[in-house]
């Protein structure tokens, strides 16, 4: 797909349409794409993946400017990366997510994902209070998921284009600099 989009754009360029907004070309290509099938986690169990999805959306939620981590498919991306990580990293993810869920059960009596919104926040507030000096697996889980959420969200079209407002890459006839 990426090759097609690039070729399309290069064709436009060679046709002399140097001002063409790349996004327009990319959108045309996107329109041909089939809607993706539901993501099947490669490393995490269904329950872990669901937990991850809930956590990432709490960390970077939908706001008036843009949708959040769930819509951006961040949990799917994190799963892909972890599936390609070393066994040590994989085990750390699993162990720490479990510790976070244990924390929820201790504080709220049930799985994190089964807690109501304020219960989830109470758990995360407590973990976040320690994030500068993580001493437990549950806090480490928070730190790890937070970093992965940031990486995944801002490398998605929702995060980079819609939320941050990145305007490139375009093919400009001229770069004006500071105007």
């Amino acid at each position: 797909m990426t090759t097609i989009s690039r070729r399309t754009v290069l064709a436009l360029l060679s046709a002399g349409i140097a001002h063409t907004h790349l996004e327009a070309a990319a959108a045309a290509v996107l329109a041909w794409r089939q809607a993706p099938a539901a993501y099947v986690p490669a490393f995490f169990t269904a329950a872990e993946h669901h937990l991850l999805d809930v956590l990432t959306e709490l960390i970077l939620p939908a706001t008036p400017r843009s949708p959040g981590a769930h819509a951006a498919g961040v949990a799917d991306f994190v799963d892909l990366v972890v599936a390609h990580s070393t066994p040590e990293t994989q085990q750390a993810w699993r162990r720490e997510l479990l510790a976070l869920d244990d924390e929820a059960r201790r504080a709220g009596g049930t799985h994190f994902t089964a807690l109501a919104d304020h219960g989830r926040r109470r758990v995360l507030d407590a973990l976040s209070a320690e994030e500068a000096h993580p001493a437990t697996d549950a806090v480490r889980a928070f730190v790890r998921v937070k970093q992965a959420t940031i990486d995944g969200f801002y490398s998605s079209a929702i995060g980079l284009r819609q939320e941050l407002g990145y305007l490139g890459p375009q093919m400009l006839a001229e770069f004006k600099g500071c105007v």
């Binding site: 709490l58 976040s128 490398s155 995060g159 990145y166």
Partner: peptide
């Protein structure tokens, strides 16, 4: 400049809308 990625995202405490706002 406004590059192809978020900048300086580390060391921001907390989570949720405030985190998103600070990165923005």
């Amino acid at each position: 400049g406004f590059g192809r990625g978020a900048t300086a995202t580390s060391g921001i405490p907390g989570y949720g809308a405030s985190l998103k706002e600070e990165i923005h």
